[in-house]
Simulated assay, not measured.
Amino acid sequence: MTQAISTASQSAQATQPIDSAKPWHCIQVTRDGDVEWLSLSRPDNFNALNLALTQELYDYFGSLPDRQDVRVVVMRGLGRHFCAGYDLEDVDQLTVSLDQGLRLQRQLSAVVLRMRRCPQPIVGLLQGAACGGGFALALGCDVRFAAPNARMNVAMAKIGLTGCDMGISYFLPRAVGPAIAAELMYTGRFVNAERALRIGLVNDVVPEDKLAETAKELVQEMLAMSPVGLRLTKDGLAMAQETSNLATVMALEDRGQAMCFEAFMKEGVAAFREKRAPNYGASR
């Protein structure tokens, strides 16, 4: 959990913050139809994680399972970097005592757990540093697009900690295989955008000023799925990665399909035959 510096710039999308009962200070949440754009908003600190930012991310992702109005989340960092890791100005909070350190560490990890447990797909847009805890946040996203200047690493390995943190030891070998994961986790070695694409860490590398546009295009395709179908697909994909039992996975798939038959399939088939966009709102 450390900061990394690179020379990068980002063009932020101009949208208006949504009204919220709880004001955010370290994140910005903007609305575009059924999509929310979540921006880490500590650009002067390279969006490094501190106690306040961690709490707001924990609260935001914890609210999503009960929100039917949000179907997809796009996550990004304002300024030059996605997230440079844990703010070293806050590191003393982790070393007060074993009890406090473990409590704060578990809250950091719980952010990623909540990202994976929320039913909305999360699209991550990476520029500049995505290091340490920022790398963990990126791995917690379902899809990742990177700018050419993106640099990622398991930064914890370089400051006396283990390379196993915030789910990295779970997600990284599943993304790139155990050998490359071992290389990165044992050394803290940086991965640039080109290699990240080659080894499967990111879905694509696009110019920084095209990140938002690329996300919008993908999100529109996601929104063409039925609301419940999209949520159950994320749930099913996650469960399939966590079990090696084919029968269990198929039982979950069967349940999800049956739940969508009556509610959405008739409209989906009609729209396909008529070569039009489906109106799943009318079929709920």
Rank of each mutant, 00 (worst) to 15 (best):
103 R>W: 13
185 M>G: 12
115 M>Q: 10
177 G>M: 07
118 C>M: 13
108 L>T: 10
157 A>G: 12
96 V>R: 12
143 V>E: 06
152 M>P: 05
69 D>Q: 10
121 P>N: 10
164 C>G: 15
207 P>R: 03
131 C>G: 07
89 E>M: 12
152 M>T: 02
178 P>F: 11
156 M>R: 06
120 Q>V: 07
118 C>P: 09
184 L>H: 04
160 G>Y: 06
161 L>M: 13
84 A>V: 06
130 A>Q: 03
79 G>Q: 10
202 V>K: 00
118 C>A: 13
184 L>A: 03
175 A>S: 12
99 D>R: 15
159 I>T: 04
193 A>I: 05
128 G>H: 02
105 Q>V: 08
199 I>F: 02
160 G>L: 06
106 R>T: 07
165 D>C: 15
118 C>F: 12
71 R>M: 05
182 A>G: 13
174 R>M: 13
134 G>I: 01
113 L>D: 15
158 K>S: 02
163 G>P: 11
135 F>S: 00
113 L>H: 10
199 I>L: 05
202 V>F: 00
91 V>Q: 02
169 S>D: 12
151 R>S: 00
155 A>K: 00
89 E>G: 14
183 E>D: 14
171 F>G: 05
149 N>H: 07
158 K>P: 00
96 V>Q: 11
107 Q>H: 14
123 V>M: 12
108 L>Y: 08
134 G>K: 03
69 D>S: 14
178 P>L: 09
112 V>H: 02
127 Q>G: 13
148 P>V: 04
144 R>N: 06
91 V>K: 04
169 S>E: 14
82 F>Y: 01
117 R>I: 08
126 L>I: 11
182 A>S: 13
78 L>V: 13
158 K>I: 01
159 I>H: 01
78 L>W: 09
124 G>P: 00
195 R>S: 13
84 A>P: 05
101 G>C: 01
163 G>R: 09
130 A>M: 09
198 R>N: 04
95 T>G: 03
74 V>G: 15
184 L>F: 07
92 D>H: 15
196 A>R: 00
200 G>A: 08
198 R>H: 09
130 A>I: 04
164 C>H: 13
174 R>F: 08
83 C>S: 07
191 V>R: 00
155 A>W: 00
111 V>P: 02
176 V>C: 05
201 L>G: 01
83 C>D: 04
178 P>C: 08
168 I>E: 13
156 M>N: 15
199 I>S: 03
88 L>H: 09
184 L>G: 07
194 E>Y: 03
205 V>S: 03
124 G>E: 08
153 N>C: 09
153 N>R: 14
155 A>I: 01
198 R>L: 02
176 V>P: 09
119 P>R: 11
128 G>E: 02
175 A>V: 06
193 A>L: 02
110 A>N: 11
107 Q>Y: 08
125 L>S: 05
93 Q>K: 13
192 N>F: 03
159 I>D: 01
143 V>K: 03
145 F>L: 14
205 V>Y: 05
188 G>I: 05
72 V>E: 09
150 A>P: 11
186 Y>G: 11
124 G>C: 03
158 K>H: 08
203 N>S: 12
106 R>M: 06
173 P>D: 12
75 M>G: 05
180 I>E: 14
129 A>G: 10
119 P>K: 11
